[in-house]
Design a protein around this nucleic acid. Sequence first.
DNA 1: TTGTGTTTCTGACTAGTTGTCAGAAATTGA
DNA 2: TCAATTTCTGACAACTAGTCAGAAACACAA
Lengths: 246, 246
Amino acid sequence: MVPVTTLTRKQREIQEREGLILDVARRMLVERGYLGLTMDRIAQEIEYSKGTVYQHFSSKEDVLVAVAGESMSKRADLFERAAAYQGPSRERMWAIGVADDLFLRLYPNHWEAEHIIRAASIQSKATRERLVGLHATEMRCFGACTGILRDAIAAGDLQVEAGEKPEDIAFGLWSMSFGAHFIAASSPNLEAKGMGDTDRSLRRNYNALLDGYGWTPLSHETDYTAAQDRILSKIFPEEARSLGLL
Amino acid sequence: MVPVTTLTRKQREIQEREGLILDVARRMLVERGYLGLTMDRIAQEIEYSKGTVYQHFSSKEDVLVAVAGESMSKRADLFERAAAYQGPSRERMWAIGVADDLFLRLYPNHWEAEHIIRAASIQSKATRERLVGLHATEMRCFGACTGILRDAIAAGDLQVEAGEKPEDIAFGLWSMSFGAHFIAASSPNLEAKGMGDTDRSLRRNYNALLDGYGWTPLSHETDYTAAQDRILSKIFPEEARSLGLL
DNA sequence: TTGTGTTTCTGACTAGTTGTCAGAAATTGA
DNA sequence: TCAATTTCTGACAACTAGTCAGAAACACAA
C-alpha cells in the first residue's frame, strides 16, 4: 500500500463530494428557490450527514456564493474567449455581447443565484475566502471588457472625452446587461407592459449605447447580425451547436 | 357617543399602526438586513404582539413587498412630475433621469428592499393584492417613460426603425438605471475595479444611449448640465434644496 | 351602571430552520 | 493487531415563521 495514493483517493473523494453538493444545491435552488434550499435536504440528497456538508461550507450562504461562483467562472471563460477574438475592436465588443447572450442560454439559472448572493446579509455570512474568489472572477469579466475598450481607444475606433475612463463605459454595458437579465428574470408579466423579446431589446440597446459613444464602425455601417454568425462559428461553435444556433 | 366616530378612531388607529409597522420594518431592514428583520422584533418594537402584526400582513415577505411598494410609489410620483415637465422631448427624458437620481438620494435604502422582493421565492409568499399594487406602481414609472418616447416620435425628435417599439427603448433605460443602482448597492470595492463615481457614469451612459438612438438634440448639441439645474429648480425645488443641490 | 355580543389582541405553541459538537466509525500506519 | 488520527454522524440548542384558543377591550342597549 502506498500511503500517498490512499490519502489522495480519500481527498479526491472529498473534493468530488464538494462538486456533488454544489450540483444538488444548484438544482434545489432552481426547483424550490432560496427558501426551499435547506442544508438538511442537501445532506439527505447526497446521502451524507449535515455535519459533513458543514465541513465543506461554513453556512448556507457560503454554498450559495459557491454556486454562483461556479457559473460566474464559466461566464468569465466565455468572456475571455470573446475578448481574444481577432477582428475590429467594435466587433470584439460585440463578441462579448454574444458571449453574454450565450451564457444566459447555457446557464439559465445563474441569475437566480447571483440575485441572492448580492444581498448584503448573504455576503456577510459567506466565507471571506470564497467572496474574494468571486470578486476575482467578476473582475475577469470586467477586465475582458476594459481590455477591448483600451484597444479601441488606442486604435482610434473610439474617442473618449477628457476625464472619461474605459471603466465608465464598461460599467454602462455591465449595468445594462445585468439590469436586463435581472428584470427579465424577476418581473412577471412584462408582456403586460408591452415588452416583447427582452433579449432582442437588449441587443438593440447594447448597439445603441456603443453607437452613442461613437464607436466605429457604427451599427448602421456594418451588419452585426452577420457578425454574430461569424463569431458563433469561430469562437463558440460547440456551444452554438448544442443550442441549435448554428 | 356617536358610534361612527368611535369606530373610526379605532380604525384610524389600526391604519396608523400599519404605517408604524412599515417604518419599523424599513429601518430594521436597513440596519440588520433581510435575515435580521424578524416578525418578533417588529412586534416588540411597535409594542404589540406578533399576532397583531399578522393581522396587517400575511407574512414577512408581505411586509417586504409593502415596504418596497411605499418607496416605489414615491418614485412614480417623481417620474410623473418629470414627465409633465414642459420642454423638448429629450429634455423631458433627461428630467426622468434627474428624477431617478433624486430618488436614489431621497430613498437610499429602496434598492435593498427591491432587491429582496424580486426574488421569486419572496414573491410567491406575498399577498396577490399587494403584488398587483406593486406592479401597477411599477407600470406608472414605465408609463411615464413610454409617454415621453411616444411624444418624441410624434414630434420627429426620434426616429425608430420598423418593428422597434418605444417599450424597447424604455426597457433599455430601465435596465441601465436598474443595473447601475443595483451593482452600486451590492458590489463592494468597485474602486478596486477602477470605478469612480457610479452616478456620474450612469448619467453619461444614459446620455450615450439616447444619443445612440439619435434622439435630438444630441448631448453635444445642448448643455444637459444646465438643463439639470433648470429641471431641479422648476420641478423639484424642495427636494433639491433639502439635498443641498440648489 | 350593568350585561351582552362583537371586535381586537395576545403569547404559548407547532413546525421547521441553521449551525454545533461529543462521541461513533472509519482510516491510517507502525 | 492495535492505537492514533481523521472523518462522519445525528441529537441538540437556539432561532424563526405562522397559528389560534382564549383573554381583554370595546360598543351599545337597557
